[in-house]
């Protein structure tokens, strides 16, 4: 389509405004992304950064190794577990906070806080709570008579996985709360009044009105949280370091370990790329969703 001179001038101005962003994008995202794929074709020793071309050798080795598959399984368990809890807590808490509650805004602040706090802080606090000798959790458990021995929260299985999943849920469920709460506030009150006139009780109103209205936002939140949980590094690395042994070692942790403990930069890159390939499925679904809803 022919553009007038002024339209072309505007287009150039638009490009000039986005230009710096595009440059930075290329330098710190696109180039490293391509480089990561390129690196995965080499065997590289991290301290010297000397490499030898191995083609798809890293991938062949990775697929043949049990470690990758085990890590993938661990990642999926962690993602599924923490995501489920996040959604359940999140929706429930959003429904509670949507009611008229005493000191509602204070309650909201308290609930949101874990999401914004640094993962480092969250982990330190929880490790203190989990502490085997002086941790308050073990104290409570023993006083309540649940167990007469202090529990080893992070050092044995399946405790470690459960603990990680729990802390993950505690840290990230506020995201679901905010998203759902925002949507709840836009559901027209008239819908509920109509349902009440039609004789629907609170339970029926939840399933017939609230849930269908929340559907879209829930799909988006599930996708987004699934992507973010799948790639979570800090929380697991700091809580268990992947242990005991490799029982909570998710894919991002394997990448880190390969690169900086095993000093196999190429192998690490291969893991990272493989991990991204798995994530791509989620990402495409998510992008499709948001694009459809937003119409660009």
């Amino acid at each position: 389509m022919a553009m007038t001179r002024i339209e072309r001038r505007y287009a150039w101005l638009g490009l000039a405004l986005i230009g710096p962003t595009v440059l930075v994008f290329c330098a710190v995202i696109v180039f490293p992304l391509v480089a990561a794929i390129y690196l995965s074709l080499f065997r590289i020793y991290t301290p010297t950064l000397e490499g030898a071309w191995v083609g798809l050798g890293n991938y062949a080795e990775l697929l043949a190794r049990g470690e990758f598959w085990q890590a993938l399984r661990t990642t999926l368990i962690w993602t599924a577990g923490t995501l489920t809890l996040q959604m359940l807590f999140g929706i429930a808490m959003a429904l509670v906070l949507h009611q008229s509650l005493w000191f509602r805004s204070l309650a909201r602040s308290l609930v949101l806080f874990p999401y914004f706090v640094s993962t480092v802080v969250a982990v330190l606090v929880w490790r203190w709570l989990f502490n085997d000798l002086y941790g308050i959790l073990n104290h409570v458990i023993m006083v309540a008579g649940v167990s007469d021995m202090p529990l080893d929260w992070l050092g044995t299985m399946p405790n470690a996985m459960v603990s990680v999943i729990l802390v993950g849920a505690w840290k990230y469920f506020p995201f679901v709360v905010i998203a759902v709460l925002a949507r709840l506030q836009t559901i027209p009150e008239a819908l509920y009044e109509a349902a009440r006139i039609d004789g629907a009780g609170p339970v029926a109103r939840f399933f017939d009105i609230t849930l269908p209205q929340l559907r879209d936002v829930l799909v988006v939140v599930v996708m987004l949280r699934a992507i973010w949980d799948f790639k979570e590094f800090d929380l697991i690395f700091l809580l268990t370091g992947g242990g005991p042994v490799t029982a909570t070692q998710t894919l991002p942790l394997v990448v880190y370990k390969e690169a900086f403990s095993m000093n196999q930069m190429g192998m690490a890159a291969a893991h990272a790329v493989a991990m991204m390939a798995v994530m791509l499925v989620f990402m495409i679904v998510y992008i499709r969703r948001t694009r459809g809803g937003q119409g660009a």
Binding site: M1, M3, T4, R5, I6
Partner: peptide, 17 residues
């Protein structure tokens, strides 16, 4: 901006202004 054609205001073509 027009895909084709001409706009004149006060006799002056303004397409590119």
């Amino acid at each position: 901006f027009p895909t084709a054609g001409e706009i004149r205001i006060g006799g002056r073509v303004v397409n590119d202004l």
